[in-house]
């Protein structure tokens, strides 16, 4: 087998570094940022809102709509001309199908929940990043969901099954296959599956097993993003009233001297992002 060492030195089942944050777009009802390697996605959820045009309304339950879009400067080559292309239309469709099984909108008949995913930069695996970001954003919006969805591309590069192919691996000069997979977290059921390239049945099964393991890691990143939003501020002890009052006092004095608060908030935000 020719492909023994990965181009960027990762282990075969190792993903690129991941980063996630919930609640990044204040206007949206729920939102998220999800980054894996150089692929970065923003997702925003608006709704449930009235579905227009009306003939698309479903009186039994609310619906979801997905809009996947790469920003014009997000491609690795020339500028991408804006506009609805067949590629983004198709990805929007599989994105919706990937999320639909866990979303429960029976309490919201005739409504629609819009999910918008935009990419400032990409390096392969964008539809998987879209699923991961959208899943966090839906949960952040408080849309009733039975489970979280995690997603990763697996595949075979010159005979070796690997996880999270980057652009250079997808373009590797040998037989390559790229298999984006999305799964529910608890039962590990597949909600998105596509492939291009060539692969044997054996390698496909190995790939899917690998996707299952990796999705578990991604789930932890997604879960932390949601929980971090509600984490107590550093040094904040809610249960002991004494410390509590002291802390509130600090806070108030900070807010009095406005410019300082902003810069210190800034710092703590940056610190969090670094962590």
């Amino acid at each position: 087998m020719a492909y023994e060492k990965r181009l960027d030195g990762r282990k075969i089942n190792e993903t690129r570094p991941m980063e996630a944050k919930a609640g990044v777009i204040p206007n949206a009802d729920g939102s998220a940022f999800f980054k894996i390697g150089a692929t970065a996605a923003y997702a925003a959820v608006y709704g449930p809102k009235e579905m227009v045009p009306r003939f698309l309304q479903d009186p039994k339950e609310g619906q979801i709509r997905c809009h996947y879009n790469m920003l014009p400067f997000s491609g690795s080559g020339e500028r991408i001309r804006p506009g609805n292309k067949r590629r983004s239309q198709e990805i929007s469709m599989v994105l919706k199908a990937a999320l639909k099984p866990v979303v429960d909108l029976t309490d919201f008949p005739n409504s629609v929940v819009d999910i918008h995913v935009e990419f400032p930069q990409t390096d392969a695996g964008s539809r998987c990043a879209a699923v991961c970001a959208a899943s966090i954003a839906l949960a952040d919006a408080g849309i009733p969901m039975k489970d979280m969805i995690s997603s990763i591309a697996v595949g075979q590069v010159d005979g070796t099954v690997v996880a999270d192919l980057n652009y250079n691996e997808e373009a590797y000069d040998a037989i390559v296959s790229d298999i984006p997979v999305a799964m529910t977290n608890n039962s590990k059921q597949i909600t998105l599956l596509q492939m291009d390239g060539e692969i044997s049945k054996e390698d496909l099964m190995t790939s899917l097993e690998m996707a299952k393991e990796v999705c578990e890691e991604i789930y932890i990143v997604q879960k932390n993003a949601l929980k971090d939003k509600y984490k107590l501020p550093e040094g904040f002890v809610a249960k002991k009233p004494k410390t509590n009052v002291e802390k509130s006092n600090d806070k108030v004095t900070e807010e009095k001297s406005k410019p300082e608060t902003e810069s210190s908030n800034e710092k703590s935000k940056e610190d969090k992002e670094k962590q």
Binding site: D29, G30, G47, P48, D104, D107, F108, A139, D140, A141, G142, I143, P144, M145, K146, D147, N186, L226, Y230
Partner: peptide
């Protein structure tokens, strides 16, 4: 029993519920 929402757990007797931290008004 699973959660269906981002929220705070609330256990009273044998009932376990989740108080949503965000979400639409019904």
């Amino acid at each position: 029993i699973f959660s269906k929402s981002v929220g705070l757990t609330s256990i009273s007797g044998r009932v376990i519920k989740v108080t949503s931290l965000s979400g639409p008004y019904k």
